[in-house]
């Protein structure tokens, strides 16, 4: 198949960017989207041009490194990461618009690469259980209800790709934050820090310049891991509880 790419090109963080049109002939429908970009980059390199900067690492949908807007859909038309998106999801002759995640808290580094370090700082603000190495009690000393463990796991599968932010009309990272708050808040081990965790994480979230959540649900709809929307309610409940208790 043949496609036309319109790709965001931006030489550096402080330079103006623009959409560049690139014709891509002979695309196999079995290629992943990133493999298609690999082929394009090889051609650009041999033509003496700069290849498109794009991040990816594990290419099996779990590291969360890859992620671009494809036709204004985070990760493209399939609910999976870009590395798991295959060209069979597109039509022959289609024009595909590719842009970086856009949010104030995710400045563009180059072309399609953005800086998502804000996520790390949100986790550092409280997205953990303080359990110094060696201090752990025997694993079976605290049973956990299977339903809680499963629900916690569902929330814990977040890969921090940033699709939720890119898709959110408010540029909010509430789903990302809520996933961690819910994961740790549902487990007995997470109780002692539950209140301070949610408040500190939300403060950091706001400080990073992410927007407020208006409960629209675009985040969940594009989330490659299907982090449930109800985690955001859980976050809100935990936050109100913590505020009312005066934490």
């Amino acid at each position: 198949m043949n496609i036309t790419l319109r790709v965001w090109r931006q030489a550096g963080p402080d330079t103006e960017g623009h959409m560049e049109t690139i014709e891509v002939p002979d695309v196999s429908e079995h290629m992943s989207f990133l493999e298609m970009i690999d082929v394009v980059n090889d051609r650009l390199t041999l033509e003496g041009k700069e290849p498109i900067a794009i991040d990816s690492d594990c290419r099996e949908g779990i590291c969360g490194t890859c992620g671009v807007m494809i036709n204004r859909q985070a990760h493209g038309p399939v609910r999976a990461t870009v590395c798991q998106l295959h060209m069979r999801s597109f039509d022959d002759g289609e024009t595909i618009d590719v842009e970086p995640w856009r949010a104030d808290a995710f400045p563009v580094v180059k072309d399609l690469v953005v800086d998502r370090s804000a996520f790390d700082r949100i986790i550092a603000a409280g997205g953990y259980i303080s359990a110094p190495t060696g201090s752990a009690p025997e694993a079976h000393s605290t049973p956990v209800k299977k339903a809680d463990a499963d629900h916690a796991f569902d929330a814990a599968t977040c890969i921090a790709c940033g699709a939720c932010v890119a898709a959110c009309p408010n540029g909010s990272a509430m789903l990302f934050t809520a996933a961690k708050v819910t994961h740790l808040g549902l487990l007995p081990q997470g109780q002692p820090e539950r209140g301070s965790r949610v408040l500190n994480m939300i403060n950091q979230h706001d400080e990073e310049g992410f927007g407020g959540c208006t409960n629209i649900g675009e985040c969940t709809a594009v989330c490659p891991k299907g982090i449930p929307f109800d985690t955001i309610s859980q976050l809100n409940r935990d936050m109100l509880g913590a505020l009312l208790r005066g934490e």
Partner: peptide
């Protein structure tokens, strides 16, 4: 064995049985 203890304490959501054990 210590690794499992450590990870559970950190909140790693290992698969559990209905009795709540790993």
């Amino acid at each position: 064995a210590n690794i499992i203890d450590q990870c559970v304490a950190q909140g790693v959501p290992f698969a559990r049985e209905y009795g709540g054990l790993l």
